[in-house]
Amino acid sequence: MTEYQLRIQRYDPEQDDTPRLQRYTVSGDHTTSVLDALLSLQQQQDPTLALRWSCRMAICGSCGVMVNGIPKLGCKTFLRDYNGVIDIAPLAHFAVEKDLIVDMTPFLAHLSAIQPYLINDKDDKAPHKQTPAQLAKYQQFSNCINCGLCYAACPQFGLNPEFLGPAAITLAQRYNLDSRDNGKASRMSQLNGNNGAWGCTFVGSCSEVCPKQLDPAAAVNQAKVESAKDFIINLFKI
């Protein structure tokens, strides 16, 4: 067992006006994740520490936090990889509700805005045909766990909360690229604007932090290409 120093950003809306930092010491071994450490703190030292978590296997997307300023899933980040004091804070660019819990409402609103479901007229009882190659076109983008790390990494979302952001645009691309979908035209109105794909300046940090290696930056910039095509096609339509 090794002793680790954690410096956690605390914020209690009923007591504090601004967040404060609190230091803790936890012991852990080579398997201890940041989430394990936070839970052991909560159980043994400070039951008032608030955080979200559930699956502890990097699939439910609940436990995103900033670790030394970088967005990480708490359950997939290990103390063994850090030296010195480890800073833990709530996800950046979201409003803090309490301690490590942020308000995810804007994130969910952006997801809903891009019509994230299949749009088609299929009405029969048989499954669609979709070859492995067609599946491969969008499969990667369908693996988003909605953890919000990419929003905490994206300075454009930080500067403009109206920006749809990496996960939502990736999800739009996921459906646009699906051979079973005919809804691209109705999704483009969301993607075309400054709050859509063009709000991205390809900082690329979303792809750096994505715990599922989705490459949302690629998706967003592919959406720009689609948006440009859409623009040109519409020019000729008039």
Binding site: R52, S54, C55, I59, C60, G61, S62, L108, N146
Partner: peptide, 11 residues
């Protein structure tokens, strides 16, 4: 009690 996509079906 959690956002729907956190539910344990996910695992």
């Amino acid at each position: 009690k959690v956002y729907p996509m956190r539910s344990h079906t996910v695992a």
